[in-house]
């Protein structure tokens, strides 16, 4: 914690300043409609167990959706990037679908899968798919042709080349897309729960709204921010493990 404070002292000053402004602005009001920090902390501690339970659901769906999207889209991206016929047909379709915001898919998912977990996971998969897919296609397309030539002179088949040459060479770029999707997965999970409400943190926000428990809403948003930051820190570690060898990574972070 002290290391974090030292790492970005101005950041913490701004954060504490903003919290102070909030406290001063709401302290005198003393109304549940304008909760101050203490009310929010109280709302959090009263509901901590419930929040933890719903958070587990939200995270589980985000994780499953993200995993499905990453695995299928990397495979699809490797194939689309290498097979010209498929690329010529699929890329224009991707360009048609991409402007549709993922939240707008929620009602469609509801038709097919109701409001259960699978509908929400479908929305998360759709939202997380595009960053991974587009970065993978781009990455494969920009691999130096020499790599492919060497692979073919070693007598590697197309599939072997994709797995042993294309995938590692494209990995740094692919992970740029995955990073976006990691952040998106939590957001999409919460949004899908708000629209297709039945359970999860997103639904809890809606419930809190209906009960006029503003403090609880703010507390949930605080929990989402904290979890989001933890996920992003964890992802930094994973990324270093996966592409710590890459010069681009060293140039960025080392």
């Amino acid at each position: 914690m002290t290391r974090l404070v030292h790492a970005n002292l101005p950041g913490f000053v701004l954060l504490v300043g903003l919290l102070a402004v909030w406290e001063i602005a709401t302290f005198g009001v003393n109304s549940p409609n304008a909760p101050d920090i203490f009310r929010v902390v109280a709302a959090f501690s009263i509901n901590a167990r419930m929040i933890a339970g719903e958070l587990a659901l939200t995270l589980a769906r985000a994780g499953i959706g993200l995993a499905i999207a990453v695995v299928t889209m990397i495979i699809a991206g490797l194939v689309i990037g290498r097979v010209t016929v498929i690329r010529n047909i699929v890329v224009p379709i991707i360009e048609l679908l991409r402007p549709i915001p993922p939240v707008a898919i929620a009602p469609v998912a509801m038709l097919f899968a109701g409001t259960g977990s699978s509908a929400k996971i479908a929305v998360i998969v759709y939202g997380c798919a595009f960053p991974v897919l587009i970065n993978t296609i781009d990455a494969v397309r920009s691999i130096h042709p020499l790599y492919t030539l060497v692979a073919s002179s070693f007598g590697m088949s197309r599939r072997q080349t994709m797995i042993a040459v294309d995938l590692p060479a494209a990995l740094p770029r692919i992970l740029v897309g995955v990073r976006t999707s990691v952040a998106l997965s939590l957001l999409m999970s919460v949004v899908s729960e708000m629209i297709l409400s039945s359970d999860g943190l997103g639904n809890l926000i809606i419930v809190a709204q209906q009960r006029y428990e503003i403090a609880l809403e703010v507390a949930i948003i605080g929990v989402i921010v904290a979890v989001g930051i933890l996920i992003s820190l964890a992802w930094n570690h994973i990324e270093r493990r996966l592409i710590g060898w890459h010069y681009g990574y060293l140039g960025r972070n080392g």
Binding site: P10, G11, L15, A183, V190, G202, I221
Partner: peptide, 24 residues
């Protein structure tokens, strides 16, 4: 430096979660 931190935190807030608060 401080905006860096603010933006790291704010990016994790789902905009949809602000809808009920803002309506209120």
């Amino acid at each position: 430096r401080s905006f860096e931190m603010l933006s790291d935190m704010a990016q994790t807030v789902p905009p949809a979660a602000l809808v009920p608060l803002m309506i209120f």
